[in-house]
Design a protein around this nucleic acid. Structure first.
Lengths: 222, 222
DNA sequence: GATTTGCTTCGGCCGCGGACGAACTATCGA
DNA sequence: TCGATAGTTCGTCCGCGGCCGAAGCAAATC
């Protein structure tokens, strides 16, 4: 157990894991950049993470794509982040480059950042969702509302993953909605092309249609 | 984030945290023993864990009782364990002393070990509980059954913590039942004096009444 | 075959941090 | 008042592990 934690405990490796947190597979070089260390150092780290089965490898031509070995790894990272930001504030805001990340990004498979927190707050405000400390619920009225949006909750309910849970946002320091509900909502937003991924980043951009849609459905101005 | 993980990443500190996993508060000396290092080294570790707010301190006379700072810390540790045992098997069975631990122990606030896994399997077998990968449910029949046992589910449901979830057992490598349901079941077993805590350990002993009760209610012979 | 690009292995440097011995501070009991 | 016990602080030692430069493979491109 200490071994796993020690692996995550190195800043370079932590950066690598965070970069992979949204589930995408990245090449060794991309990860070297993300980690802020040289390729050969990165290679060593990747080897260790692979040996411990925190990462999985997909070879493709001369590229090697690394990704998290499974959802349990992502969950672990989230729970560590959660503890980290409960601790004494030692966050120096990382200036401008992350502006976009703070604004809207993916958090594993749902929406985080100002946008994610905003959505959560509107849903809570109208009592469409009730969030507790460790879990949450969608009210009947909320289910109707989401169904009208085209969010497929029955599918989300069928999976036996946690249905709805608060996920503490590490930039906003307030909860946004994770679990199956968060994932379903996010995937519907992608379908509607309200949001789009930014290449090589977890950041999201809100499209013009997204701005309209969010305003209409959530009274949320981004 | 890497800082938090690095704290857990040291074997001595990991031992300390594990010893506190069931929520009890222990003194510095007890923790030194658990960690397997000298008191002064332990003191240093405790200082760091305290500074990072992973632990909380209660002074009482000349004793200092340390305990986990909150459930989020326990959750983090569990998720790390979960990943740890998914990795390559590097567990050398720690021989006899832990026999009792493997048999029955507390896991934060519910029952683990052979006993915990056994209970879970009986409940699943009879379709009183359905467990998925990340969450679970109690069926109506299961709710009746548990109510007859005197387990207060309504109370458990009222709390907004995860109601029922699989918790991978690191000795049995199969899931047992955690979450509010697991906690309620465990606390009822304590009430009925079916199980008792072993001093200075997370181990549990099954009483004579417990053996009878478990056989009658669960057809489980321990 | 030669070159570029993507990635890993090897070797050596260096600093962080964990370990304990010794000494210091507090609380309890007579 | 005096010891005993609980716990911490200080100082020093030392080894593990992260870092990069250089070199080695392997796959694609010329």
């Amino acid at each position: 157990m200490a071994e796993v934690a020690a692996l995550v405990g190195d800043p370079a490796r932590a950066n690598i894991l965070c970069a992979l947190l949204d589930g995408r597979a990245l090449t060794a070089t991309e990860l070297a950049f993300a980690a802020g260390v040289s390729p050969q150092t990165t290679s060593g780290h990747l080897g260790k993470l692979l040996a411990a089965r925190l990462l999985a490898l997909m070879k493709q031509g001369r590229h090697r794509y690394y990704q998290l070995a499974g959802p349990h790894v992502g969950q672990m990272l989230e729970s560590i982040m959660n503890v980290a930001l409960t601790g004494p504030p030692r966050f120096q805001p990382q200036s401008k480059l992350d502006e976009k990340l703070r604004h809207a990004r993916t958090c594993y498979d749902h929406i985080a950042g100002v946008l994610g927190v905003g959505l959560a707050e509107r849903l809570i405000e109208r009592e469409f969702v009730i969030l507790g400390d460790e879990a949450g619920e969608v009210t009947p009225a909320g289910a109707d509302f989401l169904a009208q949006l085209g969010v497929d909750l029955s599918n989300a309910r069928a999976k036996r993953r946690v249905f709805c849970r608060p996920c503490v946002d590490w930039t906003e320091r307030r909860p946004h909605i994770g679990g199956a509900v968060g994932a379903a909502l996010a995937s519907r937003c992608f379908e509607l092309q309200w949001i789009e991924r930014v290449r090589d980043s977890r950041a999201l951009t809100v499209t013009a249609a997204g701005r309209r849609g969010l305003m209409e459905a959530f009274a949320l101005s981004i």
